[in-house]
Design a protein around this nucleic acid. Structure first.
Lengths: 199, 199
DNA sequence: CAATAACCGTACACCACGTTACGGATAATC
DNA sequence: GATTATCCGTAACGTGGTGTACGGTTATTG
């Protein structure tokens, strides 16, 4: 199969996998059911991805790339820090709380081996934090790591965890905007007070 | 079986369940394996708990009671808000990030039906927030809900989520202390600046 | 002490999944 | 066009889980 057509097939397979994860959870998403839903075969899935965890790991890697690309697209100097944080913050809220990220995180929580959790950490936080730190450093931060930590805490709060355990639906645009505005305002207040340089 | 001895048996069963959850995950914790580990029988487990999800729901309810009891024990007026937040914050960090809470949250994330997630939300946030709001109201807060939200966000950050996906071990006492001190200091800074009354 | 209730250890019926294998069909390469 | 590689749909295998049932044992109650 030509590379481009194979890539399209992969995207279709992974899209079907997200649907099944959302509907049945990690344990309930069988490779046979996925093959049927994607119009592929067992042999192809195992040939391309190795095993079930390998499929999820591939999805996690692709999702991490997409999240980083969206963050990078929103980090557009020169702009006021407030405007930049609003853009980046909205993108983070939308993607980290979205159905795909939640499905992947739930799969990681279901995986007793820890393999998926490590993959998520490697692709997510380990690469997202430096991107956010770079923005803050560009705006004069002497302790970008601490500032990034604080901003993310104020921005996300317990929403990711509540999404993960299925106790909360994706917040609507109004709730997102309210959360974003408050987080940015609170962060800037702490920053002006010199309260986020601690490590 | 006498009520007291039965209660001891339940505690032993649930302790064994926590061990198996930590080792094998929700899907891998079979009722048969649990019966063996606890020295009980399948029939007894199904008789007392109804089904597998019923067992977890019972564990979630008990854990929520224990968390609330610990929080209540730390809320001791009259004291300075800072000292009270330090006590309550340390208790929250210790219990919400502990092995048992994490095991229950992972089980909820693995449960496609959403039943366990709802149970966690009902016992955790739905009762823990009012307790924290009461403390803040007692210290003169005009918007205790917003203050409680902000304090929890600063206190916990993304630690619960990272614990949930298995990407992080339980933080040691030093890390907990550092996080706690920073969160209380930042929260009081925001409070003085009037930056946490927004809703 | 006898009768009753509850628990235990095991078996059972049913169901499902992860992964491999196979014959036939299709696509790609030479 | 022939050859080779890959994919598909299905079958098969090994393993294991959920929840119920049963005979024997133990605990509780009258």
């Amino acid at each position: 199969m030509l590379d481009e057509r194979k890539e399209q097939r992969r995207l279709a397979i992974e899209a079907a996998a997200y649907d099944l994860l959302a509907e049945r959870g990690y344990a309930g998403m069988s490779m046979l059911a996925l093959a049927k839903a994607a119009g592929a075969s067992n042999e192809t899935l195992y040939n391309w991805y190795g095993d079930k965890a390998g499929l999820l790991a591939a999805m996690i890697a692709r999702n991490a790339e997409e999240v980083l690309a969206v963050i990078a697209a929103q980090a557009q100097p020169p702009r006021m820090l407030e405007a930049e944080l609003e853009s980046v913050g909205r993108a983070l809220l939308t993607m980290l709380l979205g159905e795909r990220s939640v499905a992947l995180n739930r799969a990681a929580a279901s995986d007793a081996s820890g393999e998926l959790g490590r993959a998520l950490a490697a692709g997510g936080r380990a690469r997202g934090m430096p991107a956010l730190e770079a923005i803050l450093a560009r705006h004069g931060s002497a302790a970008p790591w601490g500032e990034a930590e604080t901003f993310l805490a104020l921005l996300l709060g317990d929403w990711p965890q509540r999404r993960l355990i299925g106790a909360m639906a994706m917040p609507d645009a109004g709730a997102v905007q309210a959360r974003l505005s408050r987080a940015v305002a609170q962060f800037l207040t702490l920053r002006r007070a010199g309260a986020v340089n601690k490590r």
